[in-house]
Amino acid sequence: MNFDITMTGFVALYVFMLAGFAGWVIIGGVPAILHTPLMSGSNFVHGIVVVGGLFALLNASTALEQGIGFFAVLLGAGNVAGGYAVTDRMLAMFKTSNDTTKHKPGAHGRHAKGHAHKKS
């Protein structure tokens, strides 16, 4: 069996089209209040480029390729870690009136529950 993924021509275009459409719809549903974390969050998501950087670096066979590959992984890792750090930090700041008056445990409990729900 062959598990190699090969995408050429139209298959790739279909993937692009569907992903672009999904992105448009998903992002369209994000309220304006979260637009900054959304931007840093989507920023974090394109940090997946680090995976491509790793592929390039691991396959490098000349010093030039190693240098560029190192640079790509370095930047990609920065993109991922930084994007995540700021997004997580910002999202933690958003509280409702209930959270701020009644303390945090309530909010955490609700999160944990909601989380478990979706996983089951």
Partner: peptide, 24 residues
């Protein structure tokens, strides 16, 4: 670049973000 490397995760994530950036 995801297409070039034949990596669908990069293609999908990249395009989703591309669409998001365009919308914003």
């Amino acid at each position: 670049e995801g297409f070039v490397l034949q990596n669908p995760a990069l293609m999908i994530a990249g395009m989703v973000v591309g669409a998001a950036g365009l919308l914003l």
